[in-house]
């Protein structure tokens, strides 16, 4: 078996033999439901779509994704299994990819389990299911972006708490990057082009674009490239630790 697949399987297995998977799934599903109906005014809007559902996802991921990603490397470093893993015949990039894919698939699974809300909205009205599909894709991509950040920062430290906090902070900044408050702050100090650049770093902006049903290649590329960049950074961090 390919080492990437072997690592991913081992990782997924570990989620499900420990409470990690179940706690995450339950809390994710409960929070997704509560936020959609209470904070998102699902009924009061009188519209058959999942906009209130998806609009809560960045905030949900902000807390839950770092909780999944914090253990990816920190736990192995602390428990000594990192030494075992890295003495097996695989490259750092393969190890990183395997771990990332496991976590990403797991979040994808959590996302799929929100299907009752899709059934509900189809029962209540006739939504544009293409837009909903785009929403799911965008949401999963955004989760992947957050996860890649978390995987990188988990490689930085042996402490899961530190990894969690760092990831939350970085993700929060990347959600906010496109918000007027942040852009206003930079407006005075940075040239206009850079301010635009900062705005384009916003996960929120790209996610909202996709979840409106517009599958623009640039938005997709943004997520794919962010994932690749953060994962590469994570591999470099691991390599640096091996050398330094």
């Amino acid at each position: 078996m390919n080492p990437v697949a072997a690592v991913a399987r081992r990782e997924l297995r570990s989620y499900f033999v420990t409470p990690v998977a179940y706690v995450f799934l339950v809390i994710f599903l409960v929070l997704a439901g509560i936020l959609t109906f209470y904070a998102g005014d699902f009924y009061d809007r009188q519209q058959a779509d999942l906009q209130p559902f998806f609009s809560m996802h960045p905030w949900l991921y902000l807390v839950l994704v770092p909780a999944v990603s914090m253990r990816l490397w920190a736990e192995e470093a602390k428990g000594g299994t990192l030494e075992l893993l890295l003495s097996l015949p695989l490259t750092l990039a393969q190890a990183m990819l395997g771990k990332f894919l496991a976590a990403w698939l797991f979040i994808g699974m959590a996302l799929l389990l929100t299907f009752p809300i899709w059934i509900t909205v189809n029962y209540l009205g006739s939504p544009d299911n293409g837009v909903i599909l785009a929403g799911y894709i965008g949401s999963w991509l955004m989760a992947g972006g957050f996860l890649a950040i978390g995987a990188c920062l988990s490689a930085v430290t042996q402490s899961q708490v530190v990894a969690f906090v760092l990831t939350v902070v970085v993700c929060y900044l990347l959600i906010l990057a496109g918000q007027p408050q942040v852009l206003d702050f930079f407006q005075g100090t940075l040239p206009r082009k850079l301010v635009n650049g900062v705005a384009h770093l916003s996960m929120l902006r790209h996610f909202q674009a996709i979840s409106r049903g517009v599958l623009d290649l640039r938005d997709l590329l943004f997520f794919v490239l962010s994932m690749a960049a953060w994962l590469t950074a994570g591999v470099l961090v691991l390599d640096l630790k091996r050398t330094a």
Partner: peptide, 8 residues
């Protein structure tokens, strides 16, 4: 089993 898979 994991080690066996990793060892190809």
């Amino acid at each position: 089993t994991f080690i066996i898979r990793m060892r190809g």
